[in-house]
């Protein structure tokens, strides 16, 4: 029996409940309570899956991490297919180096656009998605990018696996921003889900490689972003849209 256990353990098919070793190198997230929960912080490399609605503070949560990733290695930050125009004020204000930043918006016409029918439009959309994933893989593999942030419409298991391998090869991390409804579990280093909270964010760890998932925690952003937190008593909407 013990021989069988030993054999399974050697093939890394068996996990000990008491040995919680991080499968990745951690970088402080800038939020002490989160670092404590995650055993040091966010992964320095590999995929990080964030299931979130847009505009609740998901990027603010990552800003200290992104700054550290960029400064430690003097490598690039890459934003692929962001949902709208990025604001330089916000990123520079957070201490990111704008000259070490790339924005990739696939689906731009290369040759002068021709009158497109409905069919070609659909093909173009598909093409843009493939190009986004291709660009992400190239960036991760190259070894000159610290972190790649991507807003994919959807991602399959095989694509995530491929990106994870590329990220390991280039020692880069990749952050996937997905809608919370997508419940497919991906081979990622860390998967978290975010809910809005009056004082900041509510964070649930869905999956952590090599560890138990931690309990849900509330992150208080009051000190950092006082203007983007509600006062203690939740106020009623002051104005109804007419």
């Amino acid at each position: 029996m013990s021989a069988l256990l030993e054999q399974l353990a050697r093939r890394q098919l068996l996990w000990h409940g008491d040995s919680q070793q991080l499968a990745y190198q951690a970088v402080s997230s800038g939020f002490p309570e989160l670092d404590q929960q995650l055993g040091g912080g966010l992964p320095a490399s590999g995929l990080i899956d964030i299931q979130t609605a847009a505009g609740i503070g998901e990027l603010r949560l990552l800003l200290p991490y992104l700054r550290q990733q960029q400064q430690q290695s003097q490598r690039l930050l890459v934003f692929i297919a962001p949902p709208a125009e990025l604001s330089a004020d916000m990123l520079a204000g957070a201490g990111l180096d704008l000259s070490q930043l790339l924005i990739i918006t696939p689906g731009q016409p290369i040759s002068p656009p021709k009158p497109a029918g409905r069919h070609t439009k659909a093909a173009k959309k598909l093409n843009a998605k493939q190009e986004a994933l291709w660009a992400a893989e190239q960036c991760l593999q190259s070894g000159c990018c610290a972190t790649v942030l991507i807003w994919p419409a959807a991602i399959s298991l095989a694509q995530a696996r491929r990106l994870q391998l590329a990220a390991e090869q280039g020692a880069a991390s990749m952050i996937l921003f997905r809608k919370p409804s997508q419940t497919l579990s991906l081979p990622v280093n860390l998967s978290i889900s975010l809910q809005p909270d009056p004082q900041g964010l509510q964070l649930t760890v869905l999956k952590r490689k090599g560890c138990w998932p931690a309990a849900p925690i509330r992150l208080n952003m009051q000190s950092r972003w006082p203007a983007l937190c509600l006062a203690d008593a939740p106020a009623e909407p002051m104005r109804q849209a007419s």
């Binding site: 330089a88 520079a92 704008l98 924005i103 990739i104 696939p106 689906g107 731009q108 190239q138």
Partner: peptide, 21 residues
């Protein structure tokens, strides 16, 4: 080199930087 690679496939307009004015 990465930049040239991305520009060759996606076109020059698809890859850009960001500056604060």
């Amino acid at each position: 080199q990465l930049l040239s690679l991305l520009q060759a496939r996606l076109g020059r307009a698809a890859v850009s930087g960001l500056t604060l004015q």
